[in-house]
Design a protein around this nucleic acid. Structure first.
Lengths: 221, 221, 221, 221
DNA sequence: GATGAATGAGGTTTCATTCAT
DNA sequence: GATGAATGAAACCTCATTCAT
């Protein structure tokens, strides 16, 4: 799967500091206002470049958004990747995964807000398809491979479909991510569990989620 | 928790037929264009009323949106409720739940699209809180109560927290809902599982999800 | 000069309490929001009548406004009239006038706010002319007559034109009225004099204005 | 007191010719229609610029209005200032003042109409305060200083308060201004005095007002 | 490469007035 | 006499994108 790029060539020629600044200012604006209400002229001004130059770097507002989104997701991706390639057993990995997501979500909440945003974007199906491919293919591969290995080594129940179980696992982790970062999901979390994630040490959450996942994967093994 | 209303009194005095029409036209517009891009003037025109009257019924665009959202969610709520109050065991209920959600999502995809939209709404925290309360409290109560009963009758592992497990269950079901209705989630589903939900008979999905949930709840019981 | 009426016949047939209520609610709305921003539907609702009935009473928003304005001005007019017809000398009358205006402005600030509003109304010249005639003719007659009498009895300088001097006197009194009731004039008063009329006992103001008027009228007599 | 600005930086960077044109077109619209009924889109179109650019220059309709108002008042201010700094005695100054105001009012009636409008503005008290400060502080300082000097040199009655007398003087002059420019005040002037200011050579008016002011200031000196 | 002035379509919301009942 | 549902024009303001310099 080729990495598609959503910026113009000129953006690559800019110096790294500027590139980073533009994306971080963009992430700030998109995550706080939402895609529609974010203002690309404001992003340009806050990043200290002219709007004209911004359009030399990105063809449209949407391209800037996607580039910002990928930038944020890549950082998170790397952390998850390093966990999954280790030699740990699936459940050890699962615990590390959960704890990493708690930490990362608190630290990089803006990245997750953008990810939440993309999931309700109304664009052409083709566009959505391309973006999902960008964002989801790497992580899904990691999960699926890992589960496949666990299956081969007999660590999990033998009748599970690794791809569907990967998705289920991801659902649970994504819910957790959103609970830490997005207002609606935080509130939903509080309504269901009585826990305000901002004031919790997360141990109960980690323990229970781990229990849920562990059971789901290993029952009747 | 009192039902809050997001329409003006005048709306209650309107014909039932008109009320229904306005909400359904509104749902159509909001779910296809998204909240920001939806156009109230278009909704009014398509519903055959003047924009002035629309504003006699709803104080703001946001109020109309929330009223549409609640209308859709209530319908789904009732279906889920009837399942949960039956005498079935938890796993039987789970299966019915999953199958009902598959069916409903296909039939009422617009309602789910609106629900997806609300989760990335950027309003004041108080506003978000009120809406989440409106939408989530009923269903969460159903889930939590049901799990609590299963716990009391020894049908599930005794060390689970019913509220957190209710949330985890809901996460999985919501993912399924979105996979049937929202472009991004459908694509994500395809990337993970290789299945296009539109062309599948869903049996594999139901079976695997049921397996996942069953294990999660009953392991080591 | 015939009293022109700005309401329909139906209004006269309404009972007195209702008439009074409508006008007072109207005055409240017009004086707080200004003519353009005042909302006749809101006035009807607050007065407890339907908007349909309101239009049975008044042909237009403007007619309602003028009727409200006249209602307020009449009350003030009566107080001023009783002063001017007394046997007092001009300067005694002037002092009573000033003190009465201070008191009345504080008590009936809404009436004065409407009067302030009318002076910047943009209607047809004919309309303006008719309204000014309504409002100004009585008071101007009182002032002019009084000054004419003082002139005849030799109480004031003999070379003054009673009509122009009446206008000058009115200017000073109107400034005082506005200073007590309208934000801009209050602020202007503070900038010029350093006095906040809301926190002053007015004695210095009364004394100085009286000095100004006394001198103006009697110099070189 | 610092000069506050009510336009954005971009407006300063525009051509002088364009700046002048926008303000004059704006004054024309505001003074003929009144603040509420004036239409910014019309102003932009008549000034030959897009509405978008208009909002690059002024953040709100109100800011444009205030900028127009200040532009007009500054021009009048300069004329008055040059009179007050001369070596003339107070009464000579007063006469010049009156004659200048007659002339200017006829020539720049639109400026005065805007000034009349502002005095019934319904905004927040803070906003009103800032605008009054902007408009009134310079002229009040001129009047007060001049009267103070006359007081020191014994040209006027020694028991007058220069600040209050400055306000009284201003009241009379403002009435004159409005009589020349605003429909309601012109009509009021006619009702009181019998004079139509449009058809008068003003000599009687000037003479009588001067008499009034002269007496007021110098009685019993 | 870099600027930023300029565009203008488009959307939410208000409210005076009418009229069928 | 009394109601209040219904109308719809009109105005403020936003912002993605272009292009001359």
């Amino acid at each position: 799967m080729l990495e598609k790029k959503y910026h113009k060539d000129a953006f690559e020629r800019a110096d790294d500091e500027r590139k980073k600044l533009i994306l971080e200012i963009g992430i700030e604006e998109f995550s706080s206002k939402g895609y529609e209400s974010a203002n690309i002229n404001v992003i340009a001004k806050n990043a200290g470049i002219s709007i004209g130059l911004m359009y030399k770097y990105f063809a449209t507002k949407e391209d800037l958004f996607i580039t910002c989104l990928k930038y944020g997701m890549d950082i998170l991706e790397k952390a998850l990747y390093s966990i999954m390639v280790s030699d740990d057993k699936l459940l050890v990995k699962a615990e590390k995964l959960i704890r990493t997501i708690c930490m990362h979500s608190k630290k990089h909440s803006n990245y997750i807000k953008m990810y939440n945003e993309i999931s309700s974007e109304k664009s052409s199906v083709d566009r959505i398809r391309a973006i999902a491919e960008e964002i989801e293919s790497k992580r899904s591969t990691i999960y699926i491979t890992t589960i496949g290995q666990a299956l081969a080594s007999g660590d999990v129940r033998c009748d599970l479909d690794p791809r569907l179980f990967a998705l289920f696992l991801d659902s649970l982790l994504t819910t957790l991510q959103f609970a830490f970062t997005c207002d609606y999901y935080r509130e939903k979390f509080r309504i269901y569990t009585g826990i305000d994630v901002n004031e919790s040490d997360n141990e109960q959450i980690v323990t229970q989620l781990l229990k849920f996942v562990e059971s789901a994967f290993t029952y009747g093994k």
